[in-house]
């Protein structure tokens, strides 16, 4: 390939990415326009965190322990504030895809000059970014009042953000694979519920994996659900470079697996789309 050809290809890639970045920007601006509405919807998170503060205060006092599973009470409560914030801000992309397939909006998207899954990815990340910030303000305020500031450093924040972005990406592709099953199944909601509950329980959203029974912990630590909440949040509140590298490697591996799976499901499913005129 000549220099000119390489340059053109580079420009073409940057143009392609630019349109998805623009979609992300528009999503962020749209969600920010309803920031107060979003915050009022997430006020319930304050109740959730208040109950967690009570539960774990009682647990640490009853056990008479300074650290449980390697977490001090401050680390534990900030861990839960972060997992809850991620959970509350995760967009329901699988449900959106389900709607698009059933309503026929997907056919409309196919005629547009973008790839449907990447368009959704830009939207997903934009919504998650705004939602996470809002949730963290509410959950963080409750926990800050209860146990003080978060136990983070500049490095743990930077690496935590990186793993959080990868976790969001992994979750997105898993949701795409589930959502696209609407091409074949009558109602995808039970599968979406199953995924979200498995993620919630086994992903370490309510309880750090270190408190799981040993065998279960070892299994879950390798599964994709273990990389969505526990991996990134552990990096934030209790950074270990060894664990961080392991988390990133597993996140990348599982993301590739889900991209391949979602791609195969999408290709097979799009062939079933019937477009009628009008």
């Amino acid at each position: 390939m000549t220099e000119v050809g390489r340059h053109r290809q580079g420009a073409s890639w940057s143009k392609k990415i630019a349109k998805y970045v623009e979609m992300l920007r528009i999503t962020v601006l749209t969600d920010l326009a309803y920031a107060y509405d979003m915050l009022s919807r997430q006020l319930f998170l304050a109740v959730v965190m208040f109950v967690f503060v009570k539960l774990w205060s009682a647990t640490y006092r009853w056990e008479g322990a300074v650290s449980i599973g390697g977490y001090t009470m401050r680390q534990m409560l900030w861990y839960l504030a972060l997992t809850e914030s991620i959970s509350m801000s995760t967009p329901r992309t699988a449900a959106d895809i389900d709607d698009d397939v059933r309503s026929g909006s997907l056919a409309y998207s196919l005629t547009k000059p973008y790839k449907y899954p990447w368009f959704l990815y830009a939207k997903h990340m934009g919504k998650a970014l705004v939602g996470f910030s809002g949730s963290l303000i509410i959950a963080g305020a409750v926990v800050w009042i209860a146990v003080g500031p978060p136990p983070v450093t500049a490095l743990s924040c930077a690496l935590g953000l990186l793993t959080a972005l990868l976790a969001c990406t992994l979750d997105f592709w898993a949701q795409v694979a589930i959502g696209l099953s609407a091409f074949w199944i009558e109602d995808g909601s039970p599968y979406r519920l199953l995924y979200s509950r498995v993620k919630m329980l086994l992903g370490g959203m309510l309880l750090p994996l270190e408190l799981f029974p040993d065998v279960l912990r070892r299994v879950v630590a390798f599964l994709p659900v273990g990389q969505i909440y526990h991996g990134p949040v552990k990096t934030f509140v209790s950074l270990s470079l060894h664990e961080f590298v392991g988390t990133v490697a597993k996140q990348v591996l599982w993301t590739i697996v889900f991209i391949a799976l979602a791609g195969a499901v999408y290709k097979a499913g799009v062939r079933r789309v019937n477009v009628h005129g009008g």
Binding site: D187, S189, P190, L193, L194, R197, V198, M200, L201, L206, L207, L211, F212, P213
Partner: peptide, 19 residues
Amino acid sequence: GRVFGMMLNDAMWLSFWLL
């Protein structure tokens, strides 16, 4: 599906407490 879905949902919450 919805009935079993809700049973599963409750079971997951209970599993948290069992853990």
